[in-house]
Write a protein that binds this DNA or RNA. Structure first.
Lengths: 168, 168
DNA sequence: CAAGGTGGTCTCTTTTCGAGACTGACGCTA
DNA sequence: TAGCGTCAGTCTCGAAAAGAGACCACCTTG
């Protein structure tokens, strides 16, 4: 049970990971972005045990990442990405970029192309102020409002995060 | 054993996820980017069981994501990010952006600031040709060389990926 | 009515995880 | 040199999660 409590930490990387960080969840979402909506399709494409899929879909619905509804053209259930779920796309694309760079010796298995031109979708990390591209070396963590709110509320275990050392 | 075989699929999202997609791995890497290098520091910061940490660090070293070496200023072991590991940073930042947007009611706990100005690090998905920003709706998957190589080699289970439906 | 597809449940076995004690190497210091 | 603290790493054992696959109720369609 202690693992779930990581979600209480004031960290915007840790909190999503408690929801998304297991064997299947991101794979399910990848399928959802590929247009899959039905239970049996998820199950067949991934080979995930049915009970496991049931559990994961339920959690994603609970978190508002997927929405379960009846299909308009039939009686069957559908799982569709909510806005919140849709916003996960850059995460999958960042994974894709890394996979293409480091785990695709024969080249990218799939090109994710811009509909309007021949270009490929790529994730970039940049400064939202000056627009310059950034790497981990250019980043300096600094306490934000979400952390200060917890400190003010007397939460424990937050001190170390305030003094987070910069990545060298 | 079937889960690990997903890594054989020609998909640059699936393959990294088989390596990175469990409770702890990305959390360990998050710590590594925060400057953590020592076994006990990972263990203490995350509360991960020692045997689990041992296993995960070993896997990351095996995959060339971390490098284990003796510290220059002492006898203890150090785990440092390799180039390959360093390249994972956009994934963590994409998760951070989503966490800030959807799981941080009090605002971002931590600002990841550009060293050179006051701006914040943000991940964007854009076309590498025309530079236009993209969402999942703008993407059209298309078979690439890594997939065709497997098809030519007579691999099974690749057909469905070629005909991957576009995200609606 | 039978066949086949749907999402979903149940059971049983195997695997993984978690907690914490334990080890052995090393350095410091009294 | 004996004692102590710290380091990474190992072992054990009970608990939790995952996996495989049968099973269910419901609905179409022939």
């Amino acid at each position: 049970m202690r693992y779930e409590q990581l979600a209480d930490l004031p960290c915007s990387i840790t909190r999503p990971l408690v929801v998304l960080g297991d064997r299947w969840t991101l794979l399910i979402l990848k399928e959802a972005f590929a247009g899959v909506r039905r239970f049996n399709a998820f199950q067949g494409n991934l080979g995930i045990p049915r009970s496991r899929l049931q559990d994961r879909l339920g959690r994603l619905v609970d978190h508002g990442i997927l929405v379960r509804q009846q299909a308009v053209d039939g009686d069957h259930a559908e799982y569709r990405l909510s806005r919140k779920g849709h916003d996960l796309y850059p995460i999958l694309m960042a994974i894709k970029d890394w996979g293409d760079a480091h785990m695709a010796p024969d080249g990218p298995p799939v090109h994710y192309r811009h509909r309007d031109c021949a270009g490929e979708a790529r994730v970039t990390l940049a400064c939202d102020c000056c627009g310059e591209r950034m790497t981990a070396h250019d980043v300096l963590p600094e306490a934000g409002p979400g952390l200060l709110a917890q400190v003010d509320a007397g939460a424990k275990g937050t001190e170390s995060l305030v003094e987070q050392p910069a990545y060298e």
